[in-house]
């Protein structure tokens, strides 16, 4: 493969900025795993994207952190777990194991 040509094709920019379809993403990830030079370029792009989004950083309302800490402290208990949205609840087996202990 022409590694330099691939790097300068623009596809890595699209990958890091989330502009590719899932299929294309997986294809890029296979290439990244094979070519260290491609991986290095992706890492640089990711750091630039991190700096870019920092430009929009805003402090969230103060009370969110405590609310979150309360949720994660509680979530090991059955009651706390049931407060979570469905997709975040502990999977069945882990839950019943914990319930036995409480």
């Amino acid at each position: 493969m022409d590694v330099q040509g691939y790097i300068s094709s623009g596809i890595l920019e699209s990958y890091v900025f989330g502009l590719l379809s899932e299929t294309e993403q997986r294809e890029v990830e296979i290439i990244i795993a094979q070519y260290p030079a491609v991986k290095a370029t992706v890492q640089e792009l990711q750091q630039d994207r991190e700096r870019f989004v920092q430009l929009y950083a805003m402090a969230p309302p103060m009370d969110i952190k405590d609310r979150l800490l309360n949720i994660i402290r509680e979530e090991e208990t059955t009651a706390g777990n049931s407060l979570l949205p469905d997709e975040l609840r502990a999977p069945g087996p882990a839950r019943s194991a914990k319930e036995k202990n409480t």
Binding site: E50, V53, Q54, Y56, A57, A59, P60, I64, K65
Partner: peptide
Amino acid sequence: YSPALYGV
């Protein structure tokens, strides 16, 4: 990281 994530 919450300011960066909240900003996004």
